[in-house]
Amino acid sequence: MSLFTLSEADLRARTSLKWQTFPSDVLPMWVAEMDAMPLPEAVDAVTEALQRGDTGYPYGTGYADAYADLAASRWGWRPAPEQLRRAGDVMNAMLSLLLGNTAEGDHIVINPPVYPPFWQIIAGYRRHITQVPLTASGRLDLAALEAAFTGPDAPTAYLLCSPHNPTGTIHTPEELSAVARLCAEHDVLLIVDEIHALLVDPGAAFTPILSLPDAQNAVVTFSAGKCWNLAAFKAGLYIRGTEASALFDRLPPLANQSTGHIGALAHTAALRHGEAWVDQVMVEVAANKDLLTRLVAERLPGVRYDRAPGTYLAWLDCSGLGLERPRDHFLAQGKVAFNNGSDFGADYGQYIRMNLAASPELITEAVERMATSLG
Rank of each mutant, 00 (worst) to 15 (best):
M1G: 07
S2Q: 13
S2K: 05
T5E: 14
S7Y: 08
E8N: 10
A9E: 15
A13S: 15
R14N: 13
L17I: 13
D25W: 15
D25K: 05
W30Q: 06
P38A: 10
P38R: 01
L39D: 02
E41S: 07
R52W: 13
G53S: 12
Y59D: 06
G60Q: 14
A64E: 08
Y67N: 06
Y67I: 09
L70Y: 15
L70K: 02
R74S: 10
P79K: 06
A80V: 11
P81I: 10
Q83H: 06
R86L: 14
G88A: 11
M91K: 07
N92F: 12
L95A: 07
S96A: 14
E104W: 07
D106V: 02
H107I: 04
N111K: 03
P112Y: 08
P113T: 07
P113M: 03
F118V: 03
Q120P: 06
Y125G: 01
R127V: 06
L142K: 02
L142A: 12
L142Y: 01
A143D: 11
E146G: 05
F149H: 05
T150E: 09
P152R: 15
T156L: 06
T156E: 05
I170C: 12
I170D: 03
P173I: 07
E175H: 11
E175N: 06
V179D: 06
A180N: 01
A180D: 05
A180S: 09
C183T: 14
E185R: 14
L189R: 05
L190R: 01
L190D: 00
E194N: 12
D201F: 04
D201L: 06
A205R: 15
P213W: 13
D214T: 09
A215R: 00
A215F: 10
T221E: 06
S223I: 00
K226G: 05
K226P: 05
W228C: 00
W228T: 02
L230K: 01
K234T: 12
L237Q: 01
Y238L: 03
E243L: 10
A246M: 12
T259K: 14
H261F: 11
A266L: 12
H267Y: 05
A269E: 03
L271F: 08
L271R: 00
W277E: 00
D279L: 13
V281R: 06
M282P: 04
M282G: 05
A286C: 09
N288M: 08
V296D: 02
V296N: 00
R299T: 08
R299L: 15
L300K: 09
V303K: 02
R304D: 03
Y305F: 15
A308T: 11
A308S: 13
G310I: 03
W315G: 03
D317Q: 10
L323Y: 07
E324L: 08
P326V: 02
P326W: 00
D328A: 15
F330M: 02
L331E: 04
A332R: 00
N339Q: 14
N340W: 13
F344E: 13
F344S: 10
A346I: 10
Y351G: 01
M354K: 03
N355E: 06
S359I: 08
E361R: 15
I363C: 03
E365L: 14
E365A: 11
A366W: 01
M370K: 07
T372M: 09
S373M: 12
